[in-house]
Write a protein that binds this DNA or RNA. Structure first.
Length: 106
DNA sequence: AGTTTGACGCTCC
DNA sequence: CGGAGCGCCAAAC
């Protein structure tokens, strides 16, 4: 048993607009605490056309948009988040304390 | 089957 | 606070 892409997508879809989650958080929620990277892979497997999954609401533990090979993608993700009300500081960082998604304990 | 490669994360410096 | 190093885990070579 391992972290499936499907499990990741299902969880990411639950992140409400204006909130973000970290790779490690998603991994932990799926029951695989050390699989943060795998979460990244799952999202990478998405084509750009998959607006079904709000991949942009997933950032790294530092509250920063994870750098990707393609130039401009960080900005793109940031734009999407700002459009939802997430604020970034001068360092291109957001406050996890304020915007991190907390799954309902139900 | 061994090595390389990452949308990560934490510790050290 | 910025950068480097190392651990992690699955997938691609």
């Amino acid at each position: 048993m391992s972290l499936s892409h499907d499990a990741v997508y299902k969880l990411v879809r639950r992140i409400p607009a204006g909130r973000v989650a970290t790779y490690g958080q998603i991994a932990a929620l799926t029951g695989f605490p050390r699989h943060a990277r795998q979460v990244g892979y799952a999202l990478a497997a998405l084509r750009g056309g998959d607006d079904d999954v709000p991949w942009h609401r997933v950032v790294n533990a530092g509250g920063r948009v994870s750098p990707r090979a393609e130039p401009g993608y960080e900005d793109y993700q940031r734009i999407l988040l700002e459009a939802e009300g997430v604020e970034f500081d001068e360092q291109g960082r957001l406050s996890l304390a304020r915007f991190q998604w907390r799954p309902e304990a139900a």
